[in-house]
Amino acid sequence: MKDTGATIEFRNVRKEFGAFTALDNFCLEVGAGEFMTLLGPSGSGKTTALNALAGFIDVGQGDILIDGISIRQTPTEKRNIGMVFQSYSLFPHRNVLANVSFPLQMRKMHKAEVRQRSMKALEMVQLAELAQRMPHELSGGQKQRVAIARALVFEPRVLLMDEPLGALDLKLRESLQLELKALQKQIGSTVIFVTHDQGEALTLSDRIAVMDQGEIQQICTPQELYDQPASTFIANFIGSNNILRVGGADQHSIQVEGLGRIPLKPGTEKPYAVGLRPELIRRTESDGVPAMVEQTIFSGEAIRYIARTEDGTEILLVEPRHPGEAPLAAGQSIALGFDFENLIFLPK
């Protein structure tokens, strides 16, 4: 891995579009060579942050720095940023090679070198043999690979990707994710990756910044995000989760719907809700929460059950599938077991 990535910093960036605040006091530091994902629903400000960094929009307040130097006054073309767009944005009038060559031509590189480096970039995405094709002759996946090669060909220290895999089907998306990760490792650029797909975010990122309403809700590694979501919103947004409301509480315990009374560690504040990952629930023979299977969903490698407890709470649980074993049928009674340490206490 080359150490070519730049550090990026957003300092109190604020951007409004009319009455709508797209970024509100936005602060973010990205380390050199880091793969940082901005994750959030549409309208959460993640694309605005990216556009501000690329220079497509002016920042209202605050500052953006690359390697500690403010780029507010630097025009887009001088920021030396590689970018991959969701809609590919390949130039329809240029063939694949000419598309990839474009950034090098803009940098007034020698013709032979342009060709050599462009072909190298195409080899990197395994498209060298399609160099003479026109964009409309390519499949979606091939188009996006060309776009990636084009973004990387000048070895930018910063690479921005705006939902680059959003327009592709699942299978292709998954294989391209792995390729993308490998490429980034190889090149060492700092990446800011925008997506609303939490699975993609978990797979690719060094760190994830979860955004909502123009602000960062939580910023941490994928594992931390999964295990310790900072809010009900995030717990809901990342993976599937059972979010269970908390009812009455005393000093030592709380009443959680579906699960009953749960002990509370001393000094802990009463949570708003409790999260329990469906894969961390197991069926027990006894000593569990009694429930009844309502629906059985077969999803290949696993089986998901929707069960209802006696107080009427719906609980989702996921079990690895054991071949030869028939899944439970609807109406069957089961007991649900879980460990207290797997409960996530969530603030509002």
């Binding site: 887009t76 001088k78 940023i81 767009f85 944005s89 130039f91 973004a151 000048f154």
Partner: peptide, 27 residues
């Protein structure tokens, strides 16, 4: 003409004028 193409050209190092002549104009 997809406005994204002009943005793409800009971010890849084309000044507004070069982006016009190398992308917008031919299209």
């Amino acid at each position: 003409i997809d406005g994204g193409l002009i943005k793409a050209a800009r971010v890849m190092g084309a000044s507004p004028i070069r982006a016009f002549w190398s992308v917008f104009f031919p299209l």
